[in-house]
Write a protein that binds this DNA or RNA. Sequence first.
DNA 1: GCCAACGTTGGC
DNA 2: GCCAACGTTGGC
Length: 141
Amino acid sequence: MAYWLFKSEPSTWSWEDQVARGEAGEEWDGVRNYQARNMMREMRLGDLGFFYHSQSEKAVVGVVEVCAEIHPDSTTDDDRWECVDIKAVAPMPRPVTLADCKAEPALANMVLVNNTRLSVQPVTPEEWALICKLGGYSPKG
DNA sequence: GCCAACGTTGGC
DNA sequence: GCCAACGTTGGC
C-alpha cells in the first residue's frame, strides 16, 4: 500500500466535483509532466491519496483512492500521457493547510513543502499518518 | 498581480 | 548534448 498526493486548482477540479463522481471516480487527466506521470505509473488499485487544493485554499481537503490503474489519458491523442482514476473516500474533518505542514518539523522534507509545483506526489507512511492525525481523520471513520 | 522555481522546447 | 528562452504553476 502506497500513499500519494493529488493537487488541483479548485476552480478547475475541486473536491466537491470529485465527491460528486461518487464510486465511479474520475480520470486524473491533464497531467503533462513526466515526474507526475511516472508517479501515477507506480500506483496500484486501493492506494490512498490526499486531495489538495492549490491556489487560494492551499490545504489537504480529502482522502481519495486509486480505482483504476494507469491508462491512456482520454483528453489527448499524445500517447506519452497517461493517468489513473481516483474516487473520493472521505473529507478531512479539518483541512490541513500548507502552513500547518510547514509548521511541522516532521514534514520538513515533504514534497509538498519542497517542490510546490509537482502536481502528483509520493507521501511517506509517516507523513500520511501525521497529516491524518492533524486533520482529525481516522480510517475507521 | 507579481515573481520565483522549474520543466520543456528548440537552436546550435 | 548543452543551454538559453519560454511557458506554466503556485505561493505570497
